[in-house]
């Protein structure tokens, strides 16, 4: 049991946690109908990836800070992505009156 405590195996623990967050985000994306909820799932997935990047950067020897740098870029791009996605969602709401992802299929008809 003591083998699995954080202070002995920090990298493994963080990887398992980020795997759990990733899977929860994926589940949110797959099952939700509301577009804003889907976006929340995407944020969970991005957070999971960020935890991985920083964990590898900090706990594997000799990797420098490239993982941390990548995390900062991911956070910045997540901000841009959220802004554009929410603008699109509001546009969908103005056109359809709701934001369910399976309703916005005007192009199909």
């Amino acid at each position: 049991m003591t083998d699995y405590l954080f202070s002995q195996r920090p990298l493994e623990n963080l990887l398992v946690l980020s795997a759990a967050l990733f899977v929860l985000g994926l589940y949110t994306i797959v099952t939700r109908k509301n577009a804003v909820s889907v976006l929340m799932g995407v944020e969970l997935v991005l957070n999971a990836a960020n935890v991985n990047f920083v964990a590898f950067s900090q706990y594997l020897p000799g990797r420098g800070i490239h993982g941390s740098m990548f995390t900062i870029f991911v956070i910045l791009l997540a901000a841009a992505e959220a802004a554009v996605a929410l603008a699109i969602i509001i546009g969908i709401y103005q056109n359809f009156g709701r934001v369910d992802v399976d309703q916005a299929d005007l192009m199909k008809e």
């Binding site: 946690l17 957070n47 960020n50 920083v54 900090q58 706990y59 900062i72 956070i75 910045l76 901000a79």
Partner: peptide, 20 residues
């Protein structure tokens, strides 16, 4: 997740996470 960055001693990323 920000607290996890704290455990990893990545203070700047912790702050960037909370701020953004």
């Amino acid at each position: 997740v920000a607290a996890m960055y704290g455990f990893m001693r990545a203070d700047f990323i912790l702050v960037a996470q909370v701020l953004i």
